[in-house]
Design a binder for these strands. Structure first.
Lengths: 210, 210
DNA sequence: CTTTCATCTGACCATACGGTCAGGAAAAGA
DNA sequence: TCTTTTCCTGACCGTATGGTCAGATGAAAG
């Protein structure tokens, strides 16, 4: 009997190729949208024959769905720092930092998500209605608690979340526009300044005290 | 000689059909992206034969370019209220209100712009480098002036603009996600609350005093 | 070695796409 | 009315796309 924990050579091949394809697909979907992306382009970027893609992912939609799910899970994890915090300055500050860092490291995933939602979320509507809804309810409850404890001003928690999502993801989704206005991609220092600007305005804007 | 001011019957036809096609195109491009949109879909939505579209717009790209230019000009005009103001509370407040209203009235245009920028601005790169750059420089100069006059906190004007753009356009681009979390489209009251929330957080966040 | 099964791939197919074109219909001018 | 110009459209074309499949290749099991 084979040990399922220690991956066999075959499992290694499968995992490596799926990761390779997903990485290429994320980039192509981000650059061209679902309709503009072609399996041939993704195959070329992954360095594999097109037929091989269809061996691992039955259809273009399957592949796209996996890419969207990836970024969604990354975002969900970003809020863990928020839950452990005792107040908005630490909690929301850490969440903003985490989201900004994701925008910097995974701009393509962010774009694919934006593309998906903008077009009516045809493949992840169920996620929005279940996982994201519950997730948001939990975080807005935490914000309401902080408001009740007098740790921040009585702002609408939903609109606050939208502002955080919008602003942090803007640095990924509209990175090209920002780079053009900036005269080139943001440097390390410029990214740090962006983080601080966003944190400063939002934390002051919600009257965070602790 | 024909009077060029009073439009002839032919000019009426041309103007009406171009507007009809542009309206349909904006919707289809917003729903499907450039690659996912088809001339046939746009034609069906406009109620015209596909060949008729090619009579008014030579190529799909020409049509797309016109749609993108439309929303860009609408946005540029939205800042006029800002220029006339004597301080950030009136100026930035009015600008946010105007941008929010556009997100509500022209969500499709906003999505097409987002799509275009996200994919590297292939058809409006020159606009970003010229018109938008100058426009932004003018507005950040105004903000710097207000800061120098002690009318607001010394925030980075560029990142403030990004935050305003990101947040206001989020209500258009991610309107579907917001509607899902909200349990349906935003009501008139909910839109008003959103406007007030955004204005309150940002104006407090930049320490606006006048 | 033999068998088995996952992995891989060139060649192929039906479909749908953007765009063209010849010629008809309608409006404007003479 | 006759001519000219614009407007309109069904039919068509070359191309590119997502997806299929038979069969080759390579790894593991007996």
């Amino acid at each position: 009997m084979r040990d399922p924990v220690r991956p066999s050579r075959r499992n290694e091949i499968r995992q490596a190729n799926e990761a390779l394809i997903l990485q290429a697909a994320e980039k192509v979907f981000a650059e061209a949208g679902f309709g503009g992306a072609t399996m041939q382009l993704i195959a070329d970027m992954a360095g594999l024959p097109k037929a091989n893609l269809h061996y691992y992912f039955a259809t273009k939609e399957d592949l796209y769905r996996r890419v969207v799910q990836n970024i969604f899970e990354i975002w969900l994890h970003a809020a863990e720092a928020m839950d452990d915090a005792s107040g908005p300055i630490a909690g929301i500050g850490a969440y903003i930092e985490a989201k900004m860092e994701i925008s910097r490291r995974h701009p393509d995933g962010s774009k694919v998500w934006a593309y998906e939602v903008m077009h009516g979320a045809p493949v992840i509507q169920d996620y929005l209605e279940t996982t994201l809804r519950e997730w948001t309810a939990g975080r807005t409850a935490l914000i309401r608690k902080w408001i009740a404890e007098g740790k921040m001003a009585p702002v609408d928690p939903d609109h606050l979340m939208y502002m955080i999502w919008a602003t942090t993801q803007h640095y990924a989704d509209f990175g090209h526009q920002i780079a053009t206005l900036n005269g080139g991609p943001l440097s390390d220092a410029a990214w740090a300044a962006a983080k601080e600007s966003v944190k400063a305005i939002i934390l002051r804007g919600i009257g965070a005290l602790e």
